[in-house]
Design a protein around this nucleic acid. Structure first.
Length: 898
RNA sequence: GCCCUGAUGGCGAAAUAGGCAGACGCAGCGGGCUUAAACCCCGCAUCUCUUCGGAGAGUACAGGUUCGAAUCCUGUUCAGGGUACCA
């Protein structure tokens, strides 16, 4: 076999053209065919093009799409671009280009790469979110949401850089400083648009249970993100007034131990609270400082907790105790924004120690009184209550529901359900996004843009100074007519979060030219997405927003399903040198590099082979060699090999043929199952293993041409979802009609398990013979093999027979123990029987020391002899006359060489 | 901090459902082919000890459940993702 590597570049273009000419991947709704919608998360078009992470993602989707297509499904497999967003705007400022130009050239670059990958997309369905035909429907949806009360405006904080006079994204703030000018970033409250996701909190939570095709971890993360908790708003009274201070807690069992309250720095009541206490300045200074810290820092258990006394007190309703009110950095605007604090929480405890606030316990292990003075840290275990009025002596977790009931009955509080989930702020004070379709009239106030005037187009002739939102200085854009009075109005300059774009794009693919948001008929046929594939970094936000959109659309009556993605797969991230592969780390391995060196099939196959799809992948340049070698070897083995061209009906007669056929059946079964289960790495291992075996079989000389032909055609089909170009080339070389991509996936067939067992026996025997030859230090002229019955054989034999009669382990044990070979192994047998009963398929088909083995080896003696170039005789005997063979170890045949 | 995930040879990893740990590859070693090298082909390969028959240990660490644990449970350490304006 020649060692020359194949030029894959040529065949890639050739087959991509043929696929396109045949229109193989274009799809239409066909009610007669079963549909399958496979979708990869669409990429953000970045100028750095595609790297190995993308290729990994698309190789998976393409593999599934091709597999399903070959299995007779009508497969929708589209591609598009998430084209709005911050990086395009940053690039525009930095390189003095326009975000549109940047984005379009990035899309062109990526598309070129994707085409070169040979992905089986229906390119006629391509979309990009930055065009009015697409974003018009973001605006339309916004108006619908507004109509339904699902969109609203409220004040919310943004990061404000006073020097750049610009709102900064969280990403652009580094340690409280602006990334560009490195000046301090302020928090500024401005009016912003929100979607009322909280209205769907319960539904989003409830339907998670239905998403059985989603990884558990994603469901758990979403569950926690929504964060439903049952608790009580306890009405502390502001001392000296009748004002109620609702403090939300899930731990009302500790109500009797409260010694202070903590307000969130963001709490709207703070100004009023401190007025006239002389603490105004101290508090407002602290609030300013606290707001600058990130939430992560503020809630970090190990970081120093800080706060100041507000000068006011509150009255605990259960015991009338007067407790001081603090403002503290660890209190967040979650629930009511007021936290009741006690010695049973670590943060509270440490805070109190620091500021000399008294503490008391109400829970101990056994209900005996304990004192915080004797403790260095909070007591957070469950236990028994004391000093808690009528609840003394109860276990705290049992008392909890009773206390909340009591609080509500006495009017001291109200049981409430709380969610961590917040409404979705969609306003961005930026240019490169969907304009929010409202205007502000001096007379009539805020007015929505009428549906007929949509889309509100994003102007392209804008100037980027790096300061502020360029829309604000665009006179023509700003000038608008009030739809109500016809007078002058100003346009809203906020644009939408790009997550709005990606929340419904999967509907648009069903008919990208639709005159509506989407085509009902097409959506009815294709949706929901059967298999969604994308990075785990989108576990919560994108996936939750897309679910929210779907639910809103269902409530409006536009779709008939509540969940967009039937099955979800989260692939792991590709790393290199300890970082995520990305341009900013300078560790990108590009597609061009790979395909130039190895060809695109190798690149695709390697990315699927090298790690399990869900685990993160540490890039290593060396590993790809192995896959490259395999693709070459595979190609050469199949190519122009007359032995593999048998096209007639095959008959398997000899044992070696039986084994090859059985291995082929196993390969079909395994590869199919592994693709369905997203175990692409194992599927490729299976293929490699089989090809290795096949190569050995071809070399052994004595081949069954028709069987080999069948095996070759089958394995080319199995390889085609992974390495489509090479497979097409081989399909043609094998003189097969049509395209392998359009062929039918091999059908599963019954596996000859016994033949599989034989293979193991043969391999073991060959090893053993080699060992003996080595020991004997001679070239044998004859090999004698002696098989002695062994207890395990007897065990299986008797077990099989008695299992036909009974399933009772006791009875089976009895018949086993009556056999003298088995009796000494009673302990092992008693363990094995229940296992074998539970897993009958695991009972060995061929066991060393069995009559089957004897028969098999007799049959194969010629074949084995050929391997060693001498005669082989096989004998089955209780005790061999040959002294050497008599020494045979249990479970191993005795071998003699002459 | 909180939520989620992961940790298996020199390396990437595999192991349906708790049942022979290390399949399939990389790097390495030995041999063949070759004037030579590359390519290719055939072997060997978890570690430690060994009288070369084999014996013992072993899936991040410490425990537990089980006849049996990489797999289930508890705790610890380390690493990664998300944390609401990166997408």
């Amino acid at each position: 076999m020649s060692g020359k590597n194949v030029d894959f570049g040529k065949m890639e273009k050739k087959w991509q053209d043929k696929w396109e000419k045949a229109g193989l991947f274009k799809v239409r709704e066909d009610p007669k065919k079963k549909k399958y919608y496979v979708l990869e998360m669409f990429p953000y078009p970045s100028a750095s093009g595609l790297h190995m992470g993308h290729i990994r993602n698309y190789s998976m989707g393409d593999c599934v799409a091709r597999y399903k297509r070959m299995n007779g499904f009508n497969v929708l497999y589209p591609m598009g671009y998430d084209a709005f967003g911050l990086p395009a705007e940053n690039a525009a400022i930095k390189h003095k280009t326009h975000p549109k130009e940047y984005t379009e050239s990035a899309i062109a670059g990526i598309k070129k790469n994707q085409k070169a990958l040979g992905l089986s997309y229906d390119w006629e369905r391509e979309i990009a979110t930055c065009y009015p035909e697409y974003y018009k429907w973001n605006q339309w949806f916004f108006l619908k949401a507004l109509e339904k009360g699902l969109a609203y405006k409220k004040e919310a904080p943004v990061n404000w850089c006073p020097d750049c006079e610009t709102v900064l994204a969280n990403e652009q703030v580094e340690n409280g400083k602006c990334w560009r000018c490195e000046n301090d970033v302020d928090e500024k409250m401005i009016d912003q648009w929100f979607f009322r996701t909280t209205k769907y909190a319960d539904e989003l939570l409830r339907d998670l249970k239905k998403l059985e095709g989603w990884p558990d971890k994603i469901r758990t993360m979403q569950d926690n993100w929504i964060g439903k908790s049952h608790g009580v708003d306890i009405y502390f009274k502001l001392d000296g007034t009748d004002e109620k201070l609702p403090t939300f807690t899930t731990r009302c069992d500790t109500i009797f131990s409260v010694t202070f309250l903590a307000f969130a720095p963001e709490h709207p009541m703070l100004d009023k609270l401190t007025r006239g206490t002389g603490k105004e300045k101290e508090v407002s200074d602290f609030v300013k400082k606290a707001k600058k810290e990130s939430i992560v820092d503020r809630t970090n258990e190990d970081k120093e907790k800080e706060g100041v006394f507000t000068g006011r007190y509150a009255i605990n309703p259960v015991n009338g105790e007067k407790v001081p009110i603090y403002v503290a950095n660890f209190a967040l605007m979650y629930g009511s924004g007021i936290v009741m604090c006690d010695a049973h929480d670590k943060r509270d405890f440490r805070f109190a120690k620091k500021y000399d606030i008294p503490l008391k316990f109400v829970i101990s292990k056994d209900g005996k009184r304990i004192d915080p003075k004797d403790y260095d840290d909070a007591f957070t275990d469950d236990g028994v209550l004391f000093d808690s009025g009528k609840f003394n002596g109860m276990k705290n977790m049992e008392a909890l529901p009773k206390i909340s009931e009591w609080l509500e009955k006495e009017g001291m509080g109200k049981r409430v359900v709380n969610y961590k989930l917040r409404d979705w702020g969609i306003s961005r004070q930026r240019y490169w996004g969907t304009p929010i379709p409202v205007v502000y009239c001096d007379k009539c106030g805020m007015q929505t843009v009428p549906e007929k005037d949509l889309p509100v187009k994003l102007p392209t002739d804008v100037k980027f100074t790096g300061q502020g939102n360029p829309l604000k200085t665009h006179k023509d854009f700003m000038k608008a007519k009030c739809p109500k009075c016809g007078g002058n109005a100003k346009r809203e300059t906020d644009t939408m979060d790009t997550f709005v774009d990606s929340s419904w794009y999967f509907l648009r693919y069903c008919d990208p030219a639709s005159k509506n948001m989407f085509n009902d008929k097409a959506v009815k046929y294709w949706m929901p997405v059967d298999q969604y594939i994308g990075g785990a970094e989108h576990a919560v936000m994108h996936l939750l927003y897309a679910r929210f959109f779907t639910k809103v659309l269902m409530d409006i009556g536009l779709v008939k399903f509540g969940e967009p993605f039937e099955k979800l797969f989260n692939q792991g991230i590709v790393y290199k040198d300890g970082h995520k592969m990305s341009k900013s780390f300078g560790n990108v391995v590009t597609q061009e590099e790979m395909s130039k060196k190895y060809g695109i099939d190798t690149a695709r196959m390697f990315l699927l082979f090298v790690a399990s799809p869900e685990s993160q992948l540490e890039w290593n340049d060396k590993g790809v060699q192995g896959t490259y070698r395999f693709v070459n070897r595979f190609y050469r083995l199949m190519c122009d090999n007359e032995k593999l061209m048998g096209s007639g009906e095959f008959k398997t007669e000899s044992t070696v043929d039986r084994i090859l056929e059985a291995k082929l059946s196993v390969a079909i079964e395994n590869v199919s199952r592994q693709i369905e289960g997203f175990q692409f790495n194992s599927a490729i291992s299976t293929i490699m293993d089989f090809v290795n075996y096949m190569q050995g079989y071809v070399k052994s000389g004595n081949v069954n041409k028709n069987l080999l032909g069948e095996a070759a055609r089958t394995i080319v089909k199995l390889v085609s979802p992974f390495a489509p170009h090479v497979s097409e080339e081989l399909w043609e070389k094998m003189r097969m009609e049509g395209l392998v991509s359009a062929s039918k996936w091999p059908t599963k067939r019954k596996v000859d398990r016994k033949a599989i067992g034989m293979e193991g026996v043969i391999r073991q025997l060959q090893d053993d013979i080699e060992h003996v030859i080595k020991l004997a230090k001679m070239k044998p002229s004859r090999i004698g093999i002696v098989i002695a019955p062994e207890w395990k054989y007897a065990f299986v034999d008797v077990l099989k027979k008695s299992m036909e009669k009974t399933r009772n382990p006791g009875e089976i044990m009895k018949s086993l123990m009556s056999v003298k070979e088995i009796r000494p192994y009673g302990k092992d047998v008693s363990k094995l029987v229940p296992f074998m009963l539970k897993n009958p398929e695991k009972i060995p088909q061929v066991l060393l020391g069995s009559k089957e083995e004897h028969a098999l080896l007799s049959e194969l003696s010629g074949f084995i002899g050929e391997q060693f170039g001498c005669n082989v005789s096989v004998e089955f005997a209780e005790k061999s006359k040959s002294p050497k063979a008599a020494q045979a170890m249990p479970g191993k045949p005795g071998i003699e060489v002459f």
